[in-house]
Simulated scan of single mutants.
Amino acid sequence: MNARDHATTTARGSDLARQIVVLSAVSFMLIAAVIGSGAFGNTAVEDQQGGALDTDGSYLAPAGPAFSIWSVIYLGLIAYAVWQALPRQRASARQRAMGWPIAVTMVLNGLWLVAARFGTLFLTVVVIVLLLAALGWAFRTAVVTRDPRGGVVDSVLIDGVTGLHLGWVTLATVANTAAWLTTVVPPSWEDAADAIGVAVLVVVALIGLAIAWRSDWRVAPALALAWGLSWLAVERLTGEPTSTPIAIAAVIVALVVLLPPLAVSGLRLIRPSID
């Protein structure tokens, strides 16, 4: 196996099918994203489900600018879909391992937007939990099949993009679930919103650290998670509903999940033998 094509020597009939499926999956995701953005005059995502998915839909919703990370993730997925379709990637062992899981995440990404537009709020929770599970599978596969000879493009478009997707959807799952619960629990529960929100963020910290540990301290998931947590803090300090305890907890958790992977990465740059 060489660094240029990271491939096995013989292509299989299923390899072309895999490439086509990935291209079809990213096309479906993009069509769903355009519709979900309200580009054709329909209701945008944040205004669907009675506004439950907007930044004021729950105590755990991040501020609007946080969602700009989708542009980075989508561009990365588009670039991956084009790159994996190149002839020299067809018989790649790495692509054989990663193409199908990433295609599943693209489809579920699009299905979430369909569920938000045409389904129920509970259905969006079901779909995003499935998306989170698929991303966990995809990212774990990326880590296990990692080949240091794969090159920068391989690292960025597989490990990097999948990691960002996983980190962001981890927080998005929390926000989506909180939005749904806000519509079904008794109003009296709001008196305990600060305590519940802080407790949930503690769990998020544990999940973020677990992802980092299981991925050999990859930085990408932590970056996306810390990004979302930072904007959650901004929204709780400047938006509605306001919660200073949740905002402070969000900042602390962002540091907790981000600093260890950054520290390990820094040590590896200084002392490569640490691996």
Rank of each mutant, 00 (worst) to 15 (best):
Pro148Asp: 15
Pro62Cys: 08
Gly266Lys: 13
Gln19Thr: 13
Ala33Gly: 03
Trp100Phe: 11
Asp216Glu: 15
Val198Gly: 05
Ala263Pro: 04
Val114Ser: 04
Arg140His: 15
Asp147Val: 10
Leu86Thr: 11
Met106Gly: 10
Ser265Leu: 14
Val26Cys: 02
Leu259Gln: 07
Val264Ser: 12
Val104Pro: 07
Gln49Ile: 06
Leu121Gly: 02
Val257Ala: 12
Ala81Leu: 06
Arg218Ile: 08
Gly163Gln: 08
Gly36Asp: 03
Ala91Val: 04
Ala7Thr: 03
Pro62Ala: 08
Ser58Glu: 10
Val219Ala: 06
Ala250Asp: 11
Ala61Ile: 03
Leu267Thr: 07
Pro186Val: 13
Ala52Val: 04
Ala93Leu: 03
Ser92Phe: 05
Trp180Cys: 09
Leu132Gly: 14
Ala61Gln: 15
Arg12Thr: 00
Val169Gly: 09
Phe28Asp: 05
Ser273Pro: 01
Gly228Asp: 07
Ala61Thr: 14
Met29Trp: 08
Ile158Glu: 02
Ala172Glu: 10
Ala32Gly: 04
Arg214Ile: 11
Gly136Pro: 06
Ala32Pro: 04
Phe28Cys: 04
Leu53His: 01
Leu77Thr: 02
Gln89Ser: 15
Thr162Phe: 01
Ser243Met: 08
Val204Leu: 12
Ala222Asp: 07
Gln84Ala: 13
Ala142Thr: 01
Leu237Ile: 07
Ser37Gln: 03
Ala133Phe: 12
Met1Arg: 13
Leu255Ala: 15
Ser188Pro: 00
Val184Leu: 14
Leu171Gly: 09
Val185Ser: 02
Ser230Glu: 00
Asp54Ser: 15
Leu111Ser: 09
Asn42Ala: 05
Ile248Gly: 05
Leu53Ser: 05
Ala205Cys: 12
Gly228Ile: 06
His165Val: 01
Ala61Trp: 03
Ser37His: 00
His6Val: 12
Thr145Asp: 15
Val72Arg: 00
Ala32Tyr: 03
Ala220Arg: 08
Leu53Asn: 05
Gly208Trp: 11
Pro87Thr: 10
